[in-house]
Amino acid sequence: MTVIVRAFRAPGDAEAVARVRRAALPFMLVTPEALVFEGEHAHPNSRYRPLVAEEGGEVIATARVGLAHDSPEPGVGYANVYVHPERRGRGAGTAVVRAAEEYLAGAGATEVYTWVLDEPGHRAFAERHGYRAGRTAHFLRLDLAGGTLPPLRTPPDGVRIVPASDFAGDPRPLFELDAATTADEPGDVATELTDYAHWLDETWGHPLFSRELTSVAVVDGRPVAFSAARTDGSTRYGTAMTGTAREYRGRGLAKLAKNDSLHRARDAGFTEAFTGNDAGNAPMLAVNEWFGYEICATEVRHVRTLG
């Protein structure tokens, strides 16, 4: 049968696309509701356009495609492709990549970044399509149901650990902390969070984001460290970001916040915890190893110059 690539249609495609993404990359949280939300709330400058590939009316592949609008570098695009493992070898991946590159070139991208599983077949596919390997990142998993978390510790004097929901009246201090720590994240593409209104809409309001399970270390009323939590509303919990303001690093505050969040997630009935780390982020990898996380998969960032 012929593979057809087209734009994602919400909400009709959401369940099928979520199923493909869970099968292709089970270490990331995704729900139909989140897919619809992300399409409706994407920043206009991101030119976000998710794609699907159909064969005989069945969605067998999909891609997240857009511009890195929050990067200070112009012309940076991304295309993360997911093919259902049982439908590989039918040309869907190639068709989606070509459609994504054509769209991004028209949107002004000069480079396209993509994450590729660190497996021979996946890396060979990327290389055949002209992509060059870059930095590496790990997916990590923690068994919340059967594992043992480190005991909760009393915060040092002057520090309180509170849920992010305590900032519901004014989340701006959390935005400022998120922006400061995100700017220090290792990566191929720099990120600058400057649009508070969009952060409120896309991050604070995201259906996977849990304000109740996100833990924040507060000093003198100011948030100085945090561990942002997402959940699929069922059994899976994920850490979206953990960070500390520069002047408060080295005191173990992010570890305290993350431990608090993990304990509350387990108490709420979540059985699996996932997170991701750049392979060069040794301090955070050490923190996650202390919690009992184990690497369950590795990805390699690839890039291709268009034109």
Score class of each variant (00 low, 15 high):
Tyr113Gln: 04
Leu117Asn: 10
Pro151Leu: 13
Leu144Gln: 14
Leu174Asn: 07
Pro120Cys: 11
Ala164Cys: 10
Leu149Cys: 09
Arg128Gln: 01
Val112Ile: 12
Val162Pro: 07
Gly158Asn: 10
Ala145Tyr: 10
Ala164Glu: 12
Pro171Ala: 06
Val162Met: 14
Thr114Ala: 13
Pro163Gln: 08
Gly134His: 06
Asp184Phe: 00
Gly169Phe: 01
Pro150Tyr: 06
Ala105His: 02
Ala168Ser: 12
Thr182Leu: 10
Val116Pro: 05
Val162Ile: 11
Ala180Thr: 00
Val116Arg: 01
Pro155Lys: 06
Ala137Glu: 15
Leu117Phe: 11
Asp170Leu: 08
Ala183Phe: 12
Arg172Ser: 09
Asp143Phe: 13
Gly106Met: 02
Arg132Asp: 04
Ala180Ile: 00
Arg135Asn: 08
Gly134Thr: 04
Ala137Gly: 15
Leu140Cys: 14
Asp157Cys: 11
Pro173Thr: 06
Ala180Trp: 01
Ala180Gly: 04
Leu142Trp: 11
Pro163Ile: 09
Ala137Ser: 12
Pro163Asp: 04
His122Gly: 03
Ala179Lys: 07
Arg123Asp: 04
Asp157Met: 07
Asp178Cys: 00
Ala137Trp: 13
Thr110Arg: 15
Leu117Asp: 11
Leu144Asn: 13
Pro151Thr: 13
Asp157Pro: 10
Trp115Gln: 01
Ala133Phe: 03
Phe125His: 05
Phe139Thr: 14
Phe167Trp: 07
Leu117Ile: 05
Asp157Trp: 09
Val116Leu: 04
His129Asn: 08
Pro151Ala: 15
Asp166Glu: 15
Ala180Met: 00
Leu117Pro: 01
Ile161Trp: 12
Gly158Cys: 12
Gly121His: 06
Glu185Pro: 04
Ala180Asp: 02
Gly106Asp: 02
Leu140Asn: 13
Pro171Gly: 05
Leu142Lys: 14
Pro173Asn: 09
Leu144Tyr: 15
Pro156Ile: 09
Ala137Asn: 10
Asp118Met: 11
Glu119Leu: 09
Asp143His: 11
Arg135Ser: 11
Ala133Gly: 05
Val112Met: 03
Ala124His: 09
Thr181Asp: 06
Arg153Gly: 11
Pro150Ile: 02
Thr182Asp: 04
Leu142Ala: 14
Ala107Gln: 01
Pro155Cys: 09
Val159Thr: 03
His122Tyr: 01
Phe125Lys: 03
Val112Lys: 03
Gly134Asn: 06
Asp178Phe: 05
Pro150Phe: 03
Thr181Ala: 10
Glu119Thr: 00
Leu177Asn: 01
Glu111Cys: 06
Tyr113Pro: 02
Thr181Val: 14
Ile161Met: 12
Asp118Ala: 12
Ala168Thr: 01
Leu174Glu: 03
Glu185Trp: 05
Tyr103Ala: 11
Leu152Arg: 13
Leu142Cys: 15
Asp157Ser: 15
Thr181Gln: 06
Ala124Leu: 08
Glu127Gln: 07
Thr114Met: 11
Ala179Pro: 08
Asp118Glu: 13
Ala105Gln: 04
